[in-house]
Design a protein around this nucleic acid. Sequence first.
DNA 1: AATAAATTTTAGACAAACCTAAAAAATTAT
DNA 2: ATAATTTTTTAGGTTTGTCTAAAATTTATT
Lengths: 221, 221
Amino acid sequence: MISNFSQSEENYIKAIYHLQQADGSVTTNELAGMLHTKPASVTDMLKKLKAKKLLHYERYKGFHLSIEGKKVALSIIRRHRLWEYFLVSKLQFGWDEVHEVAEELEHVRSHKLIDKLDFFLNHPKFDPHGDPIPDNNGKMSMQHHIQLIELPLNTQAEVTAVNSQSSELLELLQHKNIHIGTKLEVKRKFGFDNSFELKIRNKPAVNISKQLAQALNVKPL
Amino acid sequence: MISNFSQSEENYIKAIYHLQQADGSVTTNELAGMLHTKPASVTDMLKKLKAKKLLHYERYKGFHLSIEGKKVALSIIRRHRLWEYFLVSKLQFGWDEVHEVAEELEHVRSHKLIDKLDFFLNHPKFDPHGDPIPDNNGKMSMQHHIQLIELPLNTQAEVTAVNSQSSELLELLQHKNIHIGTKLEVKRKFGFDNSFELKIRNKPAVNISKQLAQALNVKPL
DNA sequence: AATAAATTTTAGACAAACCTAAAAAATTAT
DNA sequence: ATAATTTTTTAGGTTTGTCTAAAATTTATT
Ligand SMILES: [Mn+2]
Ligand SMILES: [Mn+2]
Ligand SMILES: [Mn+2]
Ligand SMILES: [Mn+2]
């Protein structure tokens, strides 16, 4: 019941969870790349996590989390995203600055702490990057959002998430006065450079590049 | 500038700081006792901390922190007490529940995090147990408080700190409606059992035992 | 002052989490 | 199908922080 994994084990579990979202299965090199470690170290850890039944793993075959492993991963992600929300909403961090700190805070394990933090923050459903925060049972609100680049012309939509956490993106979005929750519609697309003309209510039209459009997710209203 | 000590090193440094407040100098066995570790492990760590110039240490002679070591200790204590204050004032923990969690949170090192937390909490000067929170430069407000047991009769005083963090003490104080900040005076002392009769403004008289009187610090007004 | 007891240190091991270099297996190119 | 290349694992080390048992030193007792 009171899971007790090392910081290192938790970082591996979380990384595997994120990687397997894409392929379903993860390779040693992929994981080593994500954790800035060496493949040999990954193999060592895989054996340990397999012994703890968190992982399905046959040597040379790749691996993915067990049901139990996924539960653990979701509880780590819950802690990570709740802390990110706290840092931005209460301590006034920018969303480009919170990842590193949350990467440490997520390892402070205390059920009471997380429950009370969740209550204090009023049970937020999404973190500052628009990613869903799993609840106590690992359930997350599903956003059926699309990339802004795929939004049809003249359709009202709301910005729901960013696909990058770089300061450069935040800087640009602040300059253009776009943030999570902003309602907008695409008025024109220019084929030459794939740039867009956006309209935000009561504001002059804004132009955004293809790269920026790809970095934003929106939900049609 | 960006000090980077392991969690273990930080725990040793903080424990040495607290122990040397009493004697001025600390012994291997004392420290082992405080950290629930063995004397041999302490000796190992002493060598490491000495090499890092945080400690004055000659074998078989005892040891105490260097100026630099004290600075590090104070910054850890600052983090510990700020987090305790946060847990009690924002997350509604009882002050008997915060120590363990703060013991972990104190190791999340990020200057920005602590500065912003301090700002968010409005620069508190004392933690929930009445202990002073060092500022960014290691300075703490000095409380010239005394044990309640030493307070003269009929002298108005304010409760400033508790000498124990046990749930039992908190339970008793809550029952008697005494907390940090409560203003009271001692009306009588009974020689037979050293119990006290207290008067709190607009409240009926309360009786407290010698043990309880020893657990409370007060500042005469 | 000599002996006994307690404290502290050293020597040698161990687990966790990493690493490098070499071997084994799988994949891909010829 | 064979050879070349890439991926993964194994073998053997290293560092950190711990431990037990034995040796060295200090302190207390007679
Ligand atoms: Mn992490
Ligand atoms: Mn996030
Ligand atoms: Mn600690
Ligand atoms: Mn405290």
